[in-house]
Design a protein around this nucleic acid. Structure first.
Lengths: 110, 110
DNA sequence: AATAAATTTCGATATTATTCGAATTATCGA
DNA sequence: TCGATAATTCGAATAATATCGAAATTTATT
């Protein structure tokens, strides 16, 4: 039937579950648009381009502990990577899974 | 930030929610691979190529009422279309949303 | 009209998810 | 070392989801 193994299907389902929450999806889009996938945003406080946990929760009307929880979910699903830089923890989108998700929907059309 | 309006983000989140259940994702993949998106599968019982509700539940170890529920979810999320043909109800993938989902992940990479 | 096949609806239950607030940990700067 | 900032952990309340089985509906066949 499908070209994917069952464990791959499970993995895709996990990714979609992570993106099924509107707030998590907004965070993911924030990361996608604020910096080139695979890289953390440059630290320009003026331009407001950044990607730490606190920034991702801004404009979302949820408390920090909830933001933290959501980011952990995105990370568990393999969508983002995280790294501590001083007090802040930087996040960025994993370009590999982004590519595989694009192919997931693109392949059947080509 | 993102290129999408908030109502579009909500709509994407709905689509991802529908695909977040492994059984629903398998059904979706079944539809994608059994027939060209936008068309129902040809009715060749020999080849086993078809896309009615009963067929989608086969090999999935879930009862018909659960299959029906899942298909309704896929339909509510706008992922598939359905049409009655006699006793059976045929399903096929909506090519428009498939394209928009592909772009969702493809755009940031290009 | 009666039966069979395909699907849906409904109600129930068990599991999982969302979000909060309080308390805790980690790091930086004075 | 103290205080401030950033983030996490934990427990709890509420809401949503997945799945089943029984009963009902729709369509085709005899």
């Amino acid at each position: 039937m499908s070209n994917y193994r069952d464990d791959q299907i499970i993995q895709f389902a996990e990714a979609f579950k992570a993106l099924s929450n509107p707030n998590r999806l907004r965070m993911f889009l924030h990361l996608i648009t604020c910096c080139v996938p695979g890289t953390v945003g440059s630290f320009d406080a003026e331009a407001g381009v950044s990607a730490c946990v606190g920034d991702l929760g801004r404009d979302l009307d949820i408390v920090p502990s909830t933001v933290s929880h959501h980011i952990k979910e995105l990370h568990r699903a393999g969508l983002i990577r995280m790294e501590r830089r001083g007090q802040k923890i930087e996040c960025w989108v994993d370009p590999v899974i982004l590519r595989s998700l694009a192919r997931f929907f693109d392949e059947p059309l080509t």
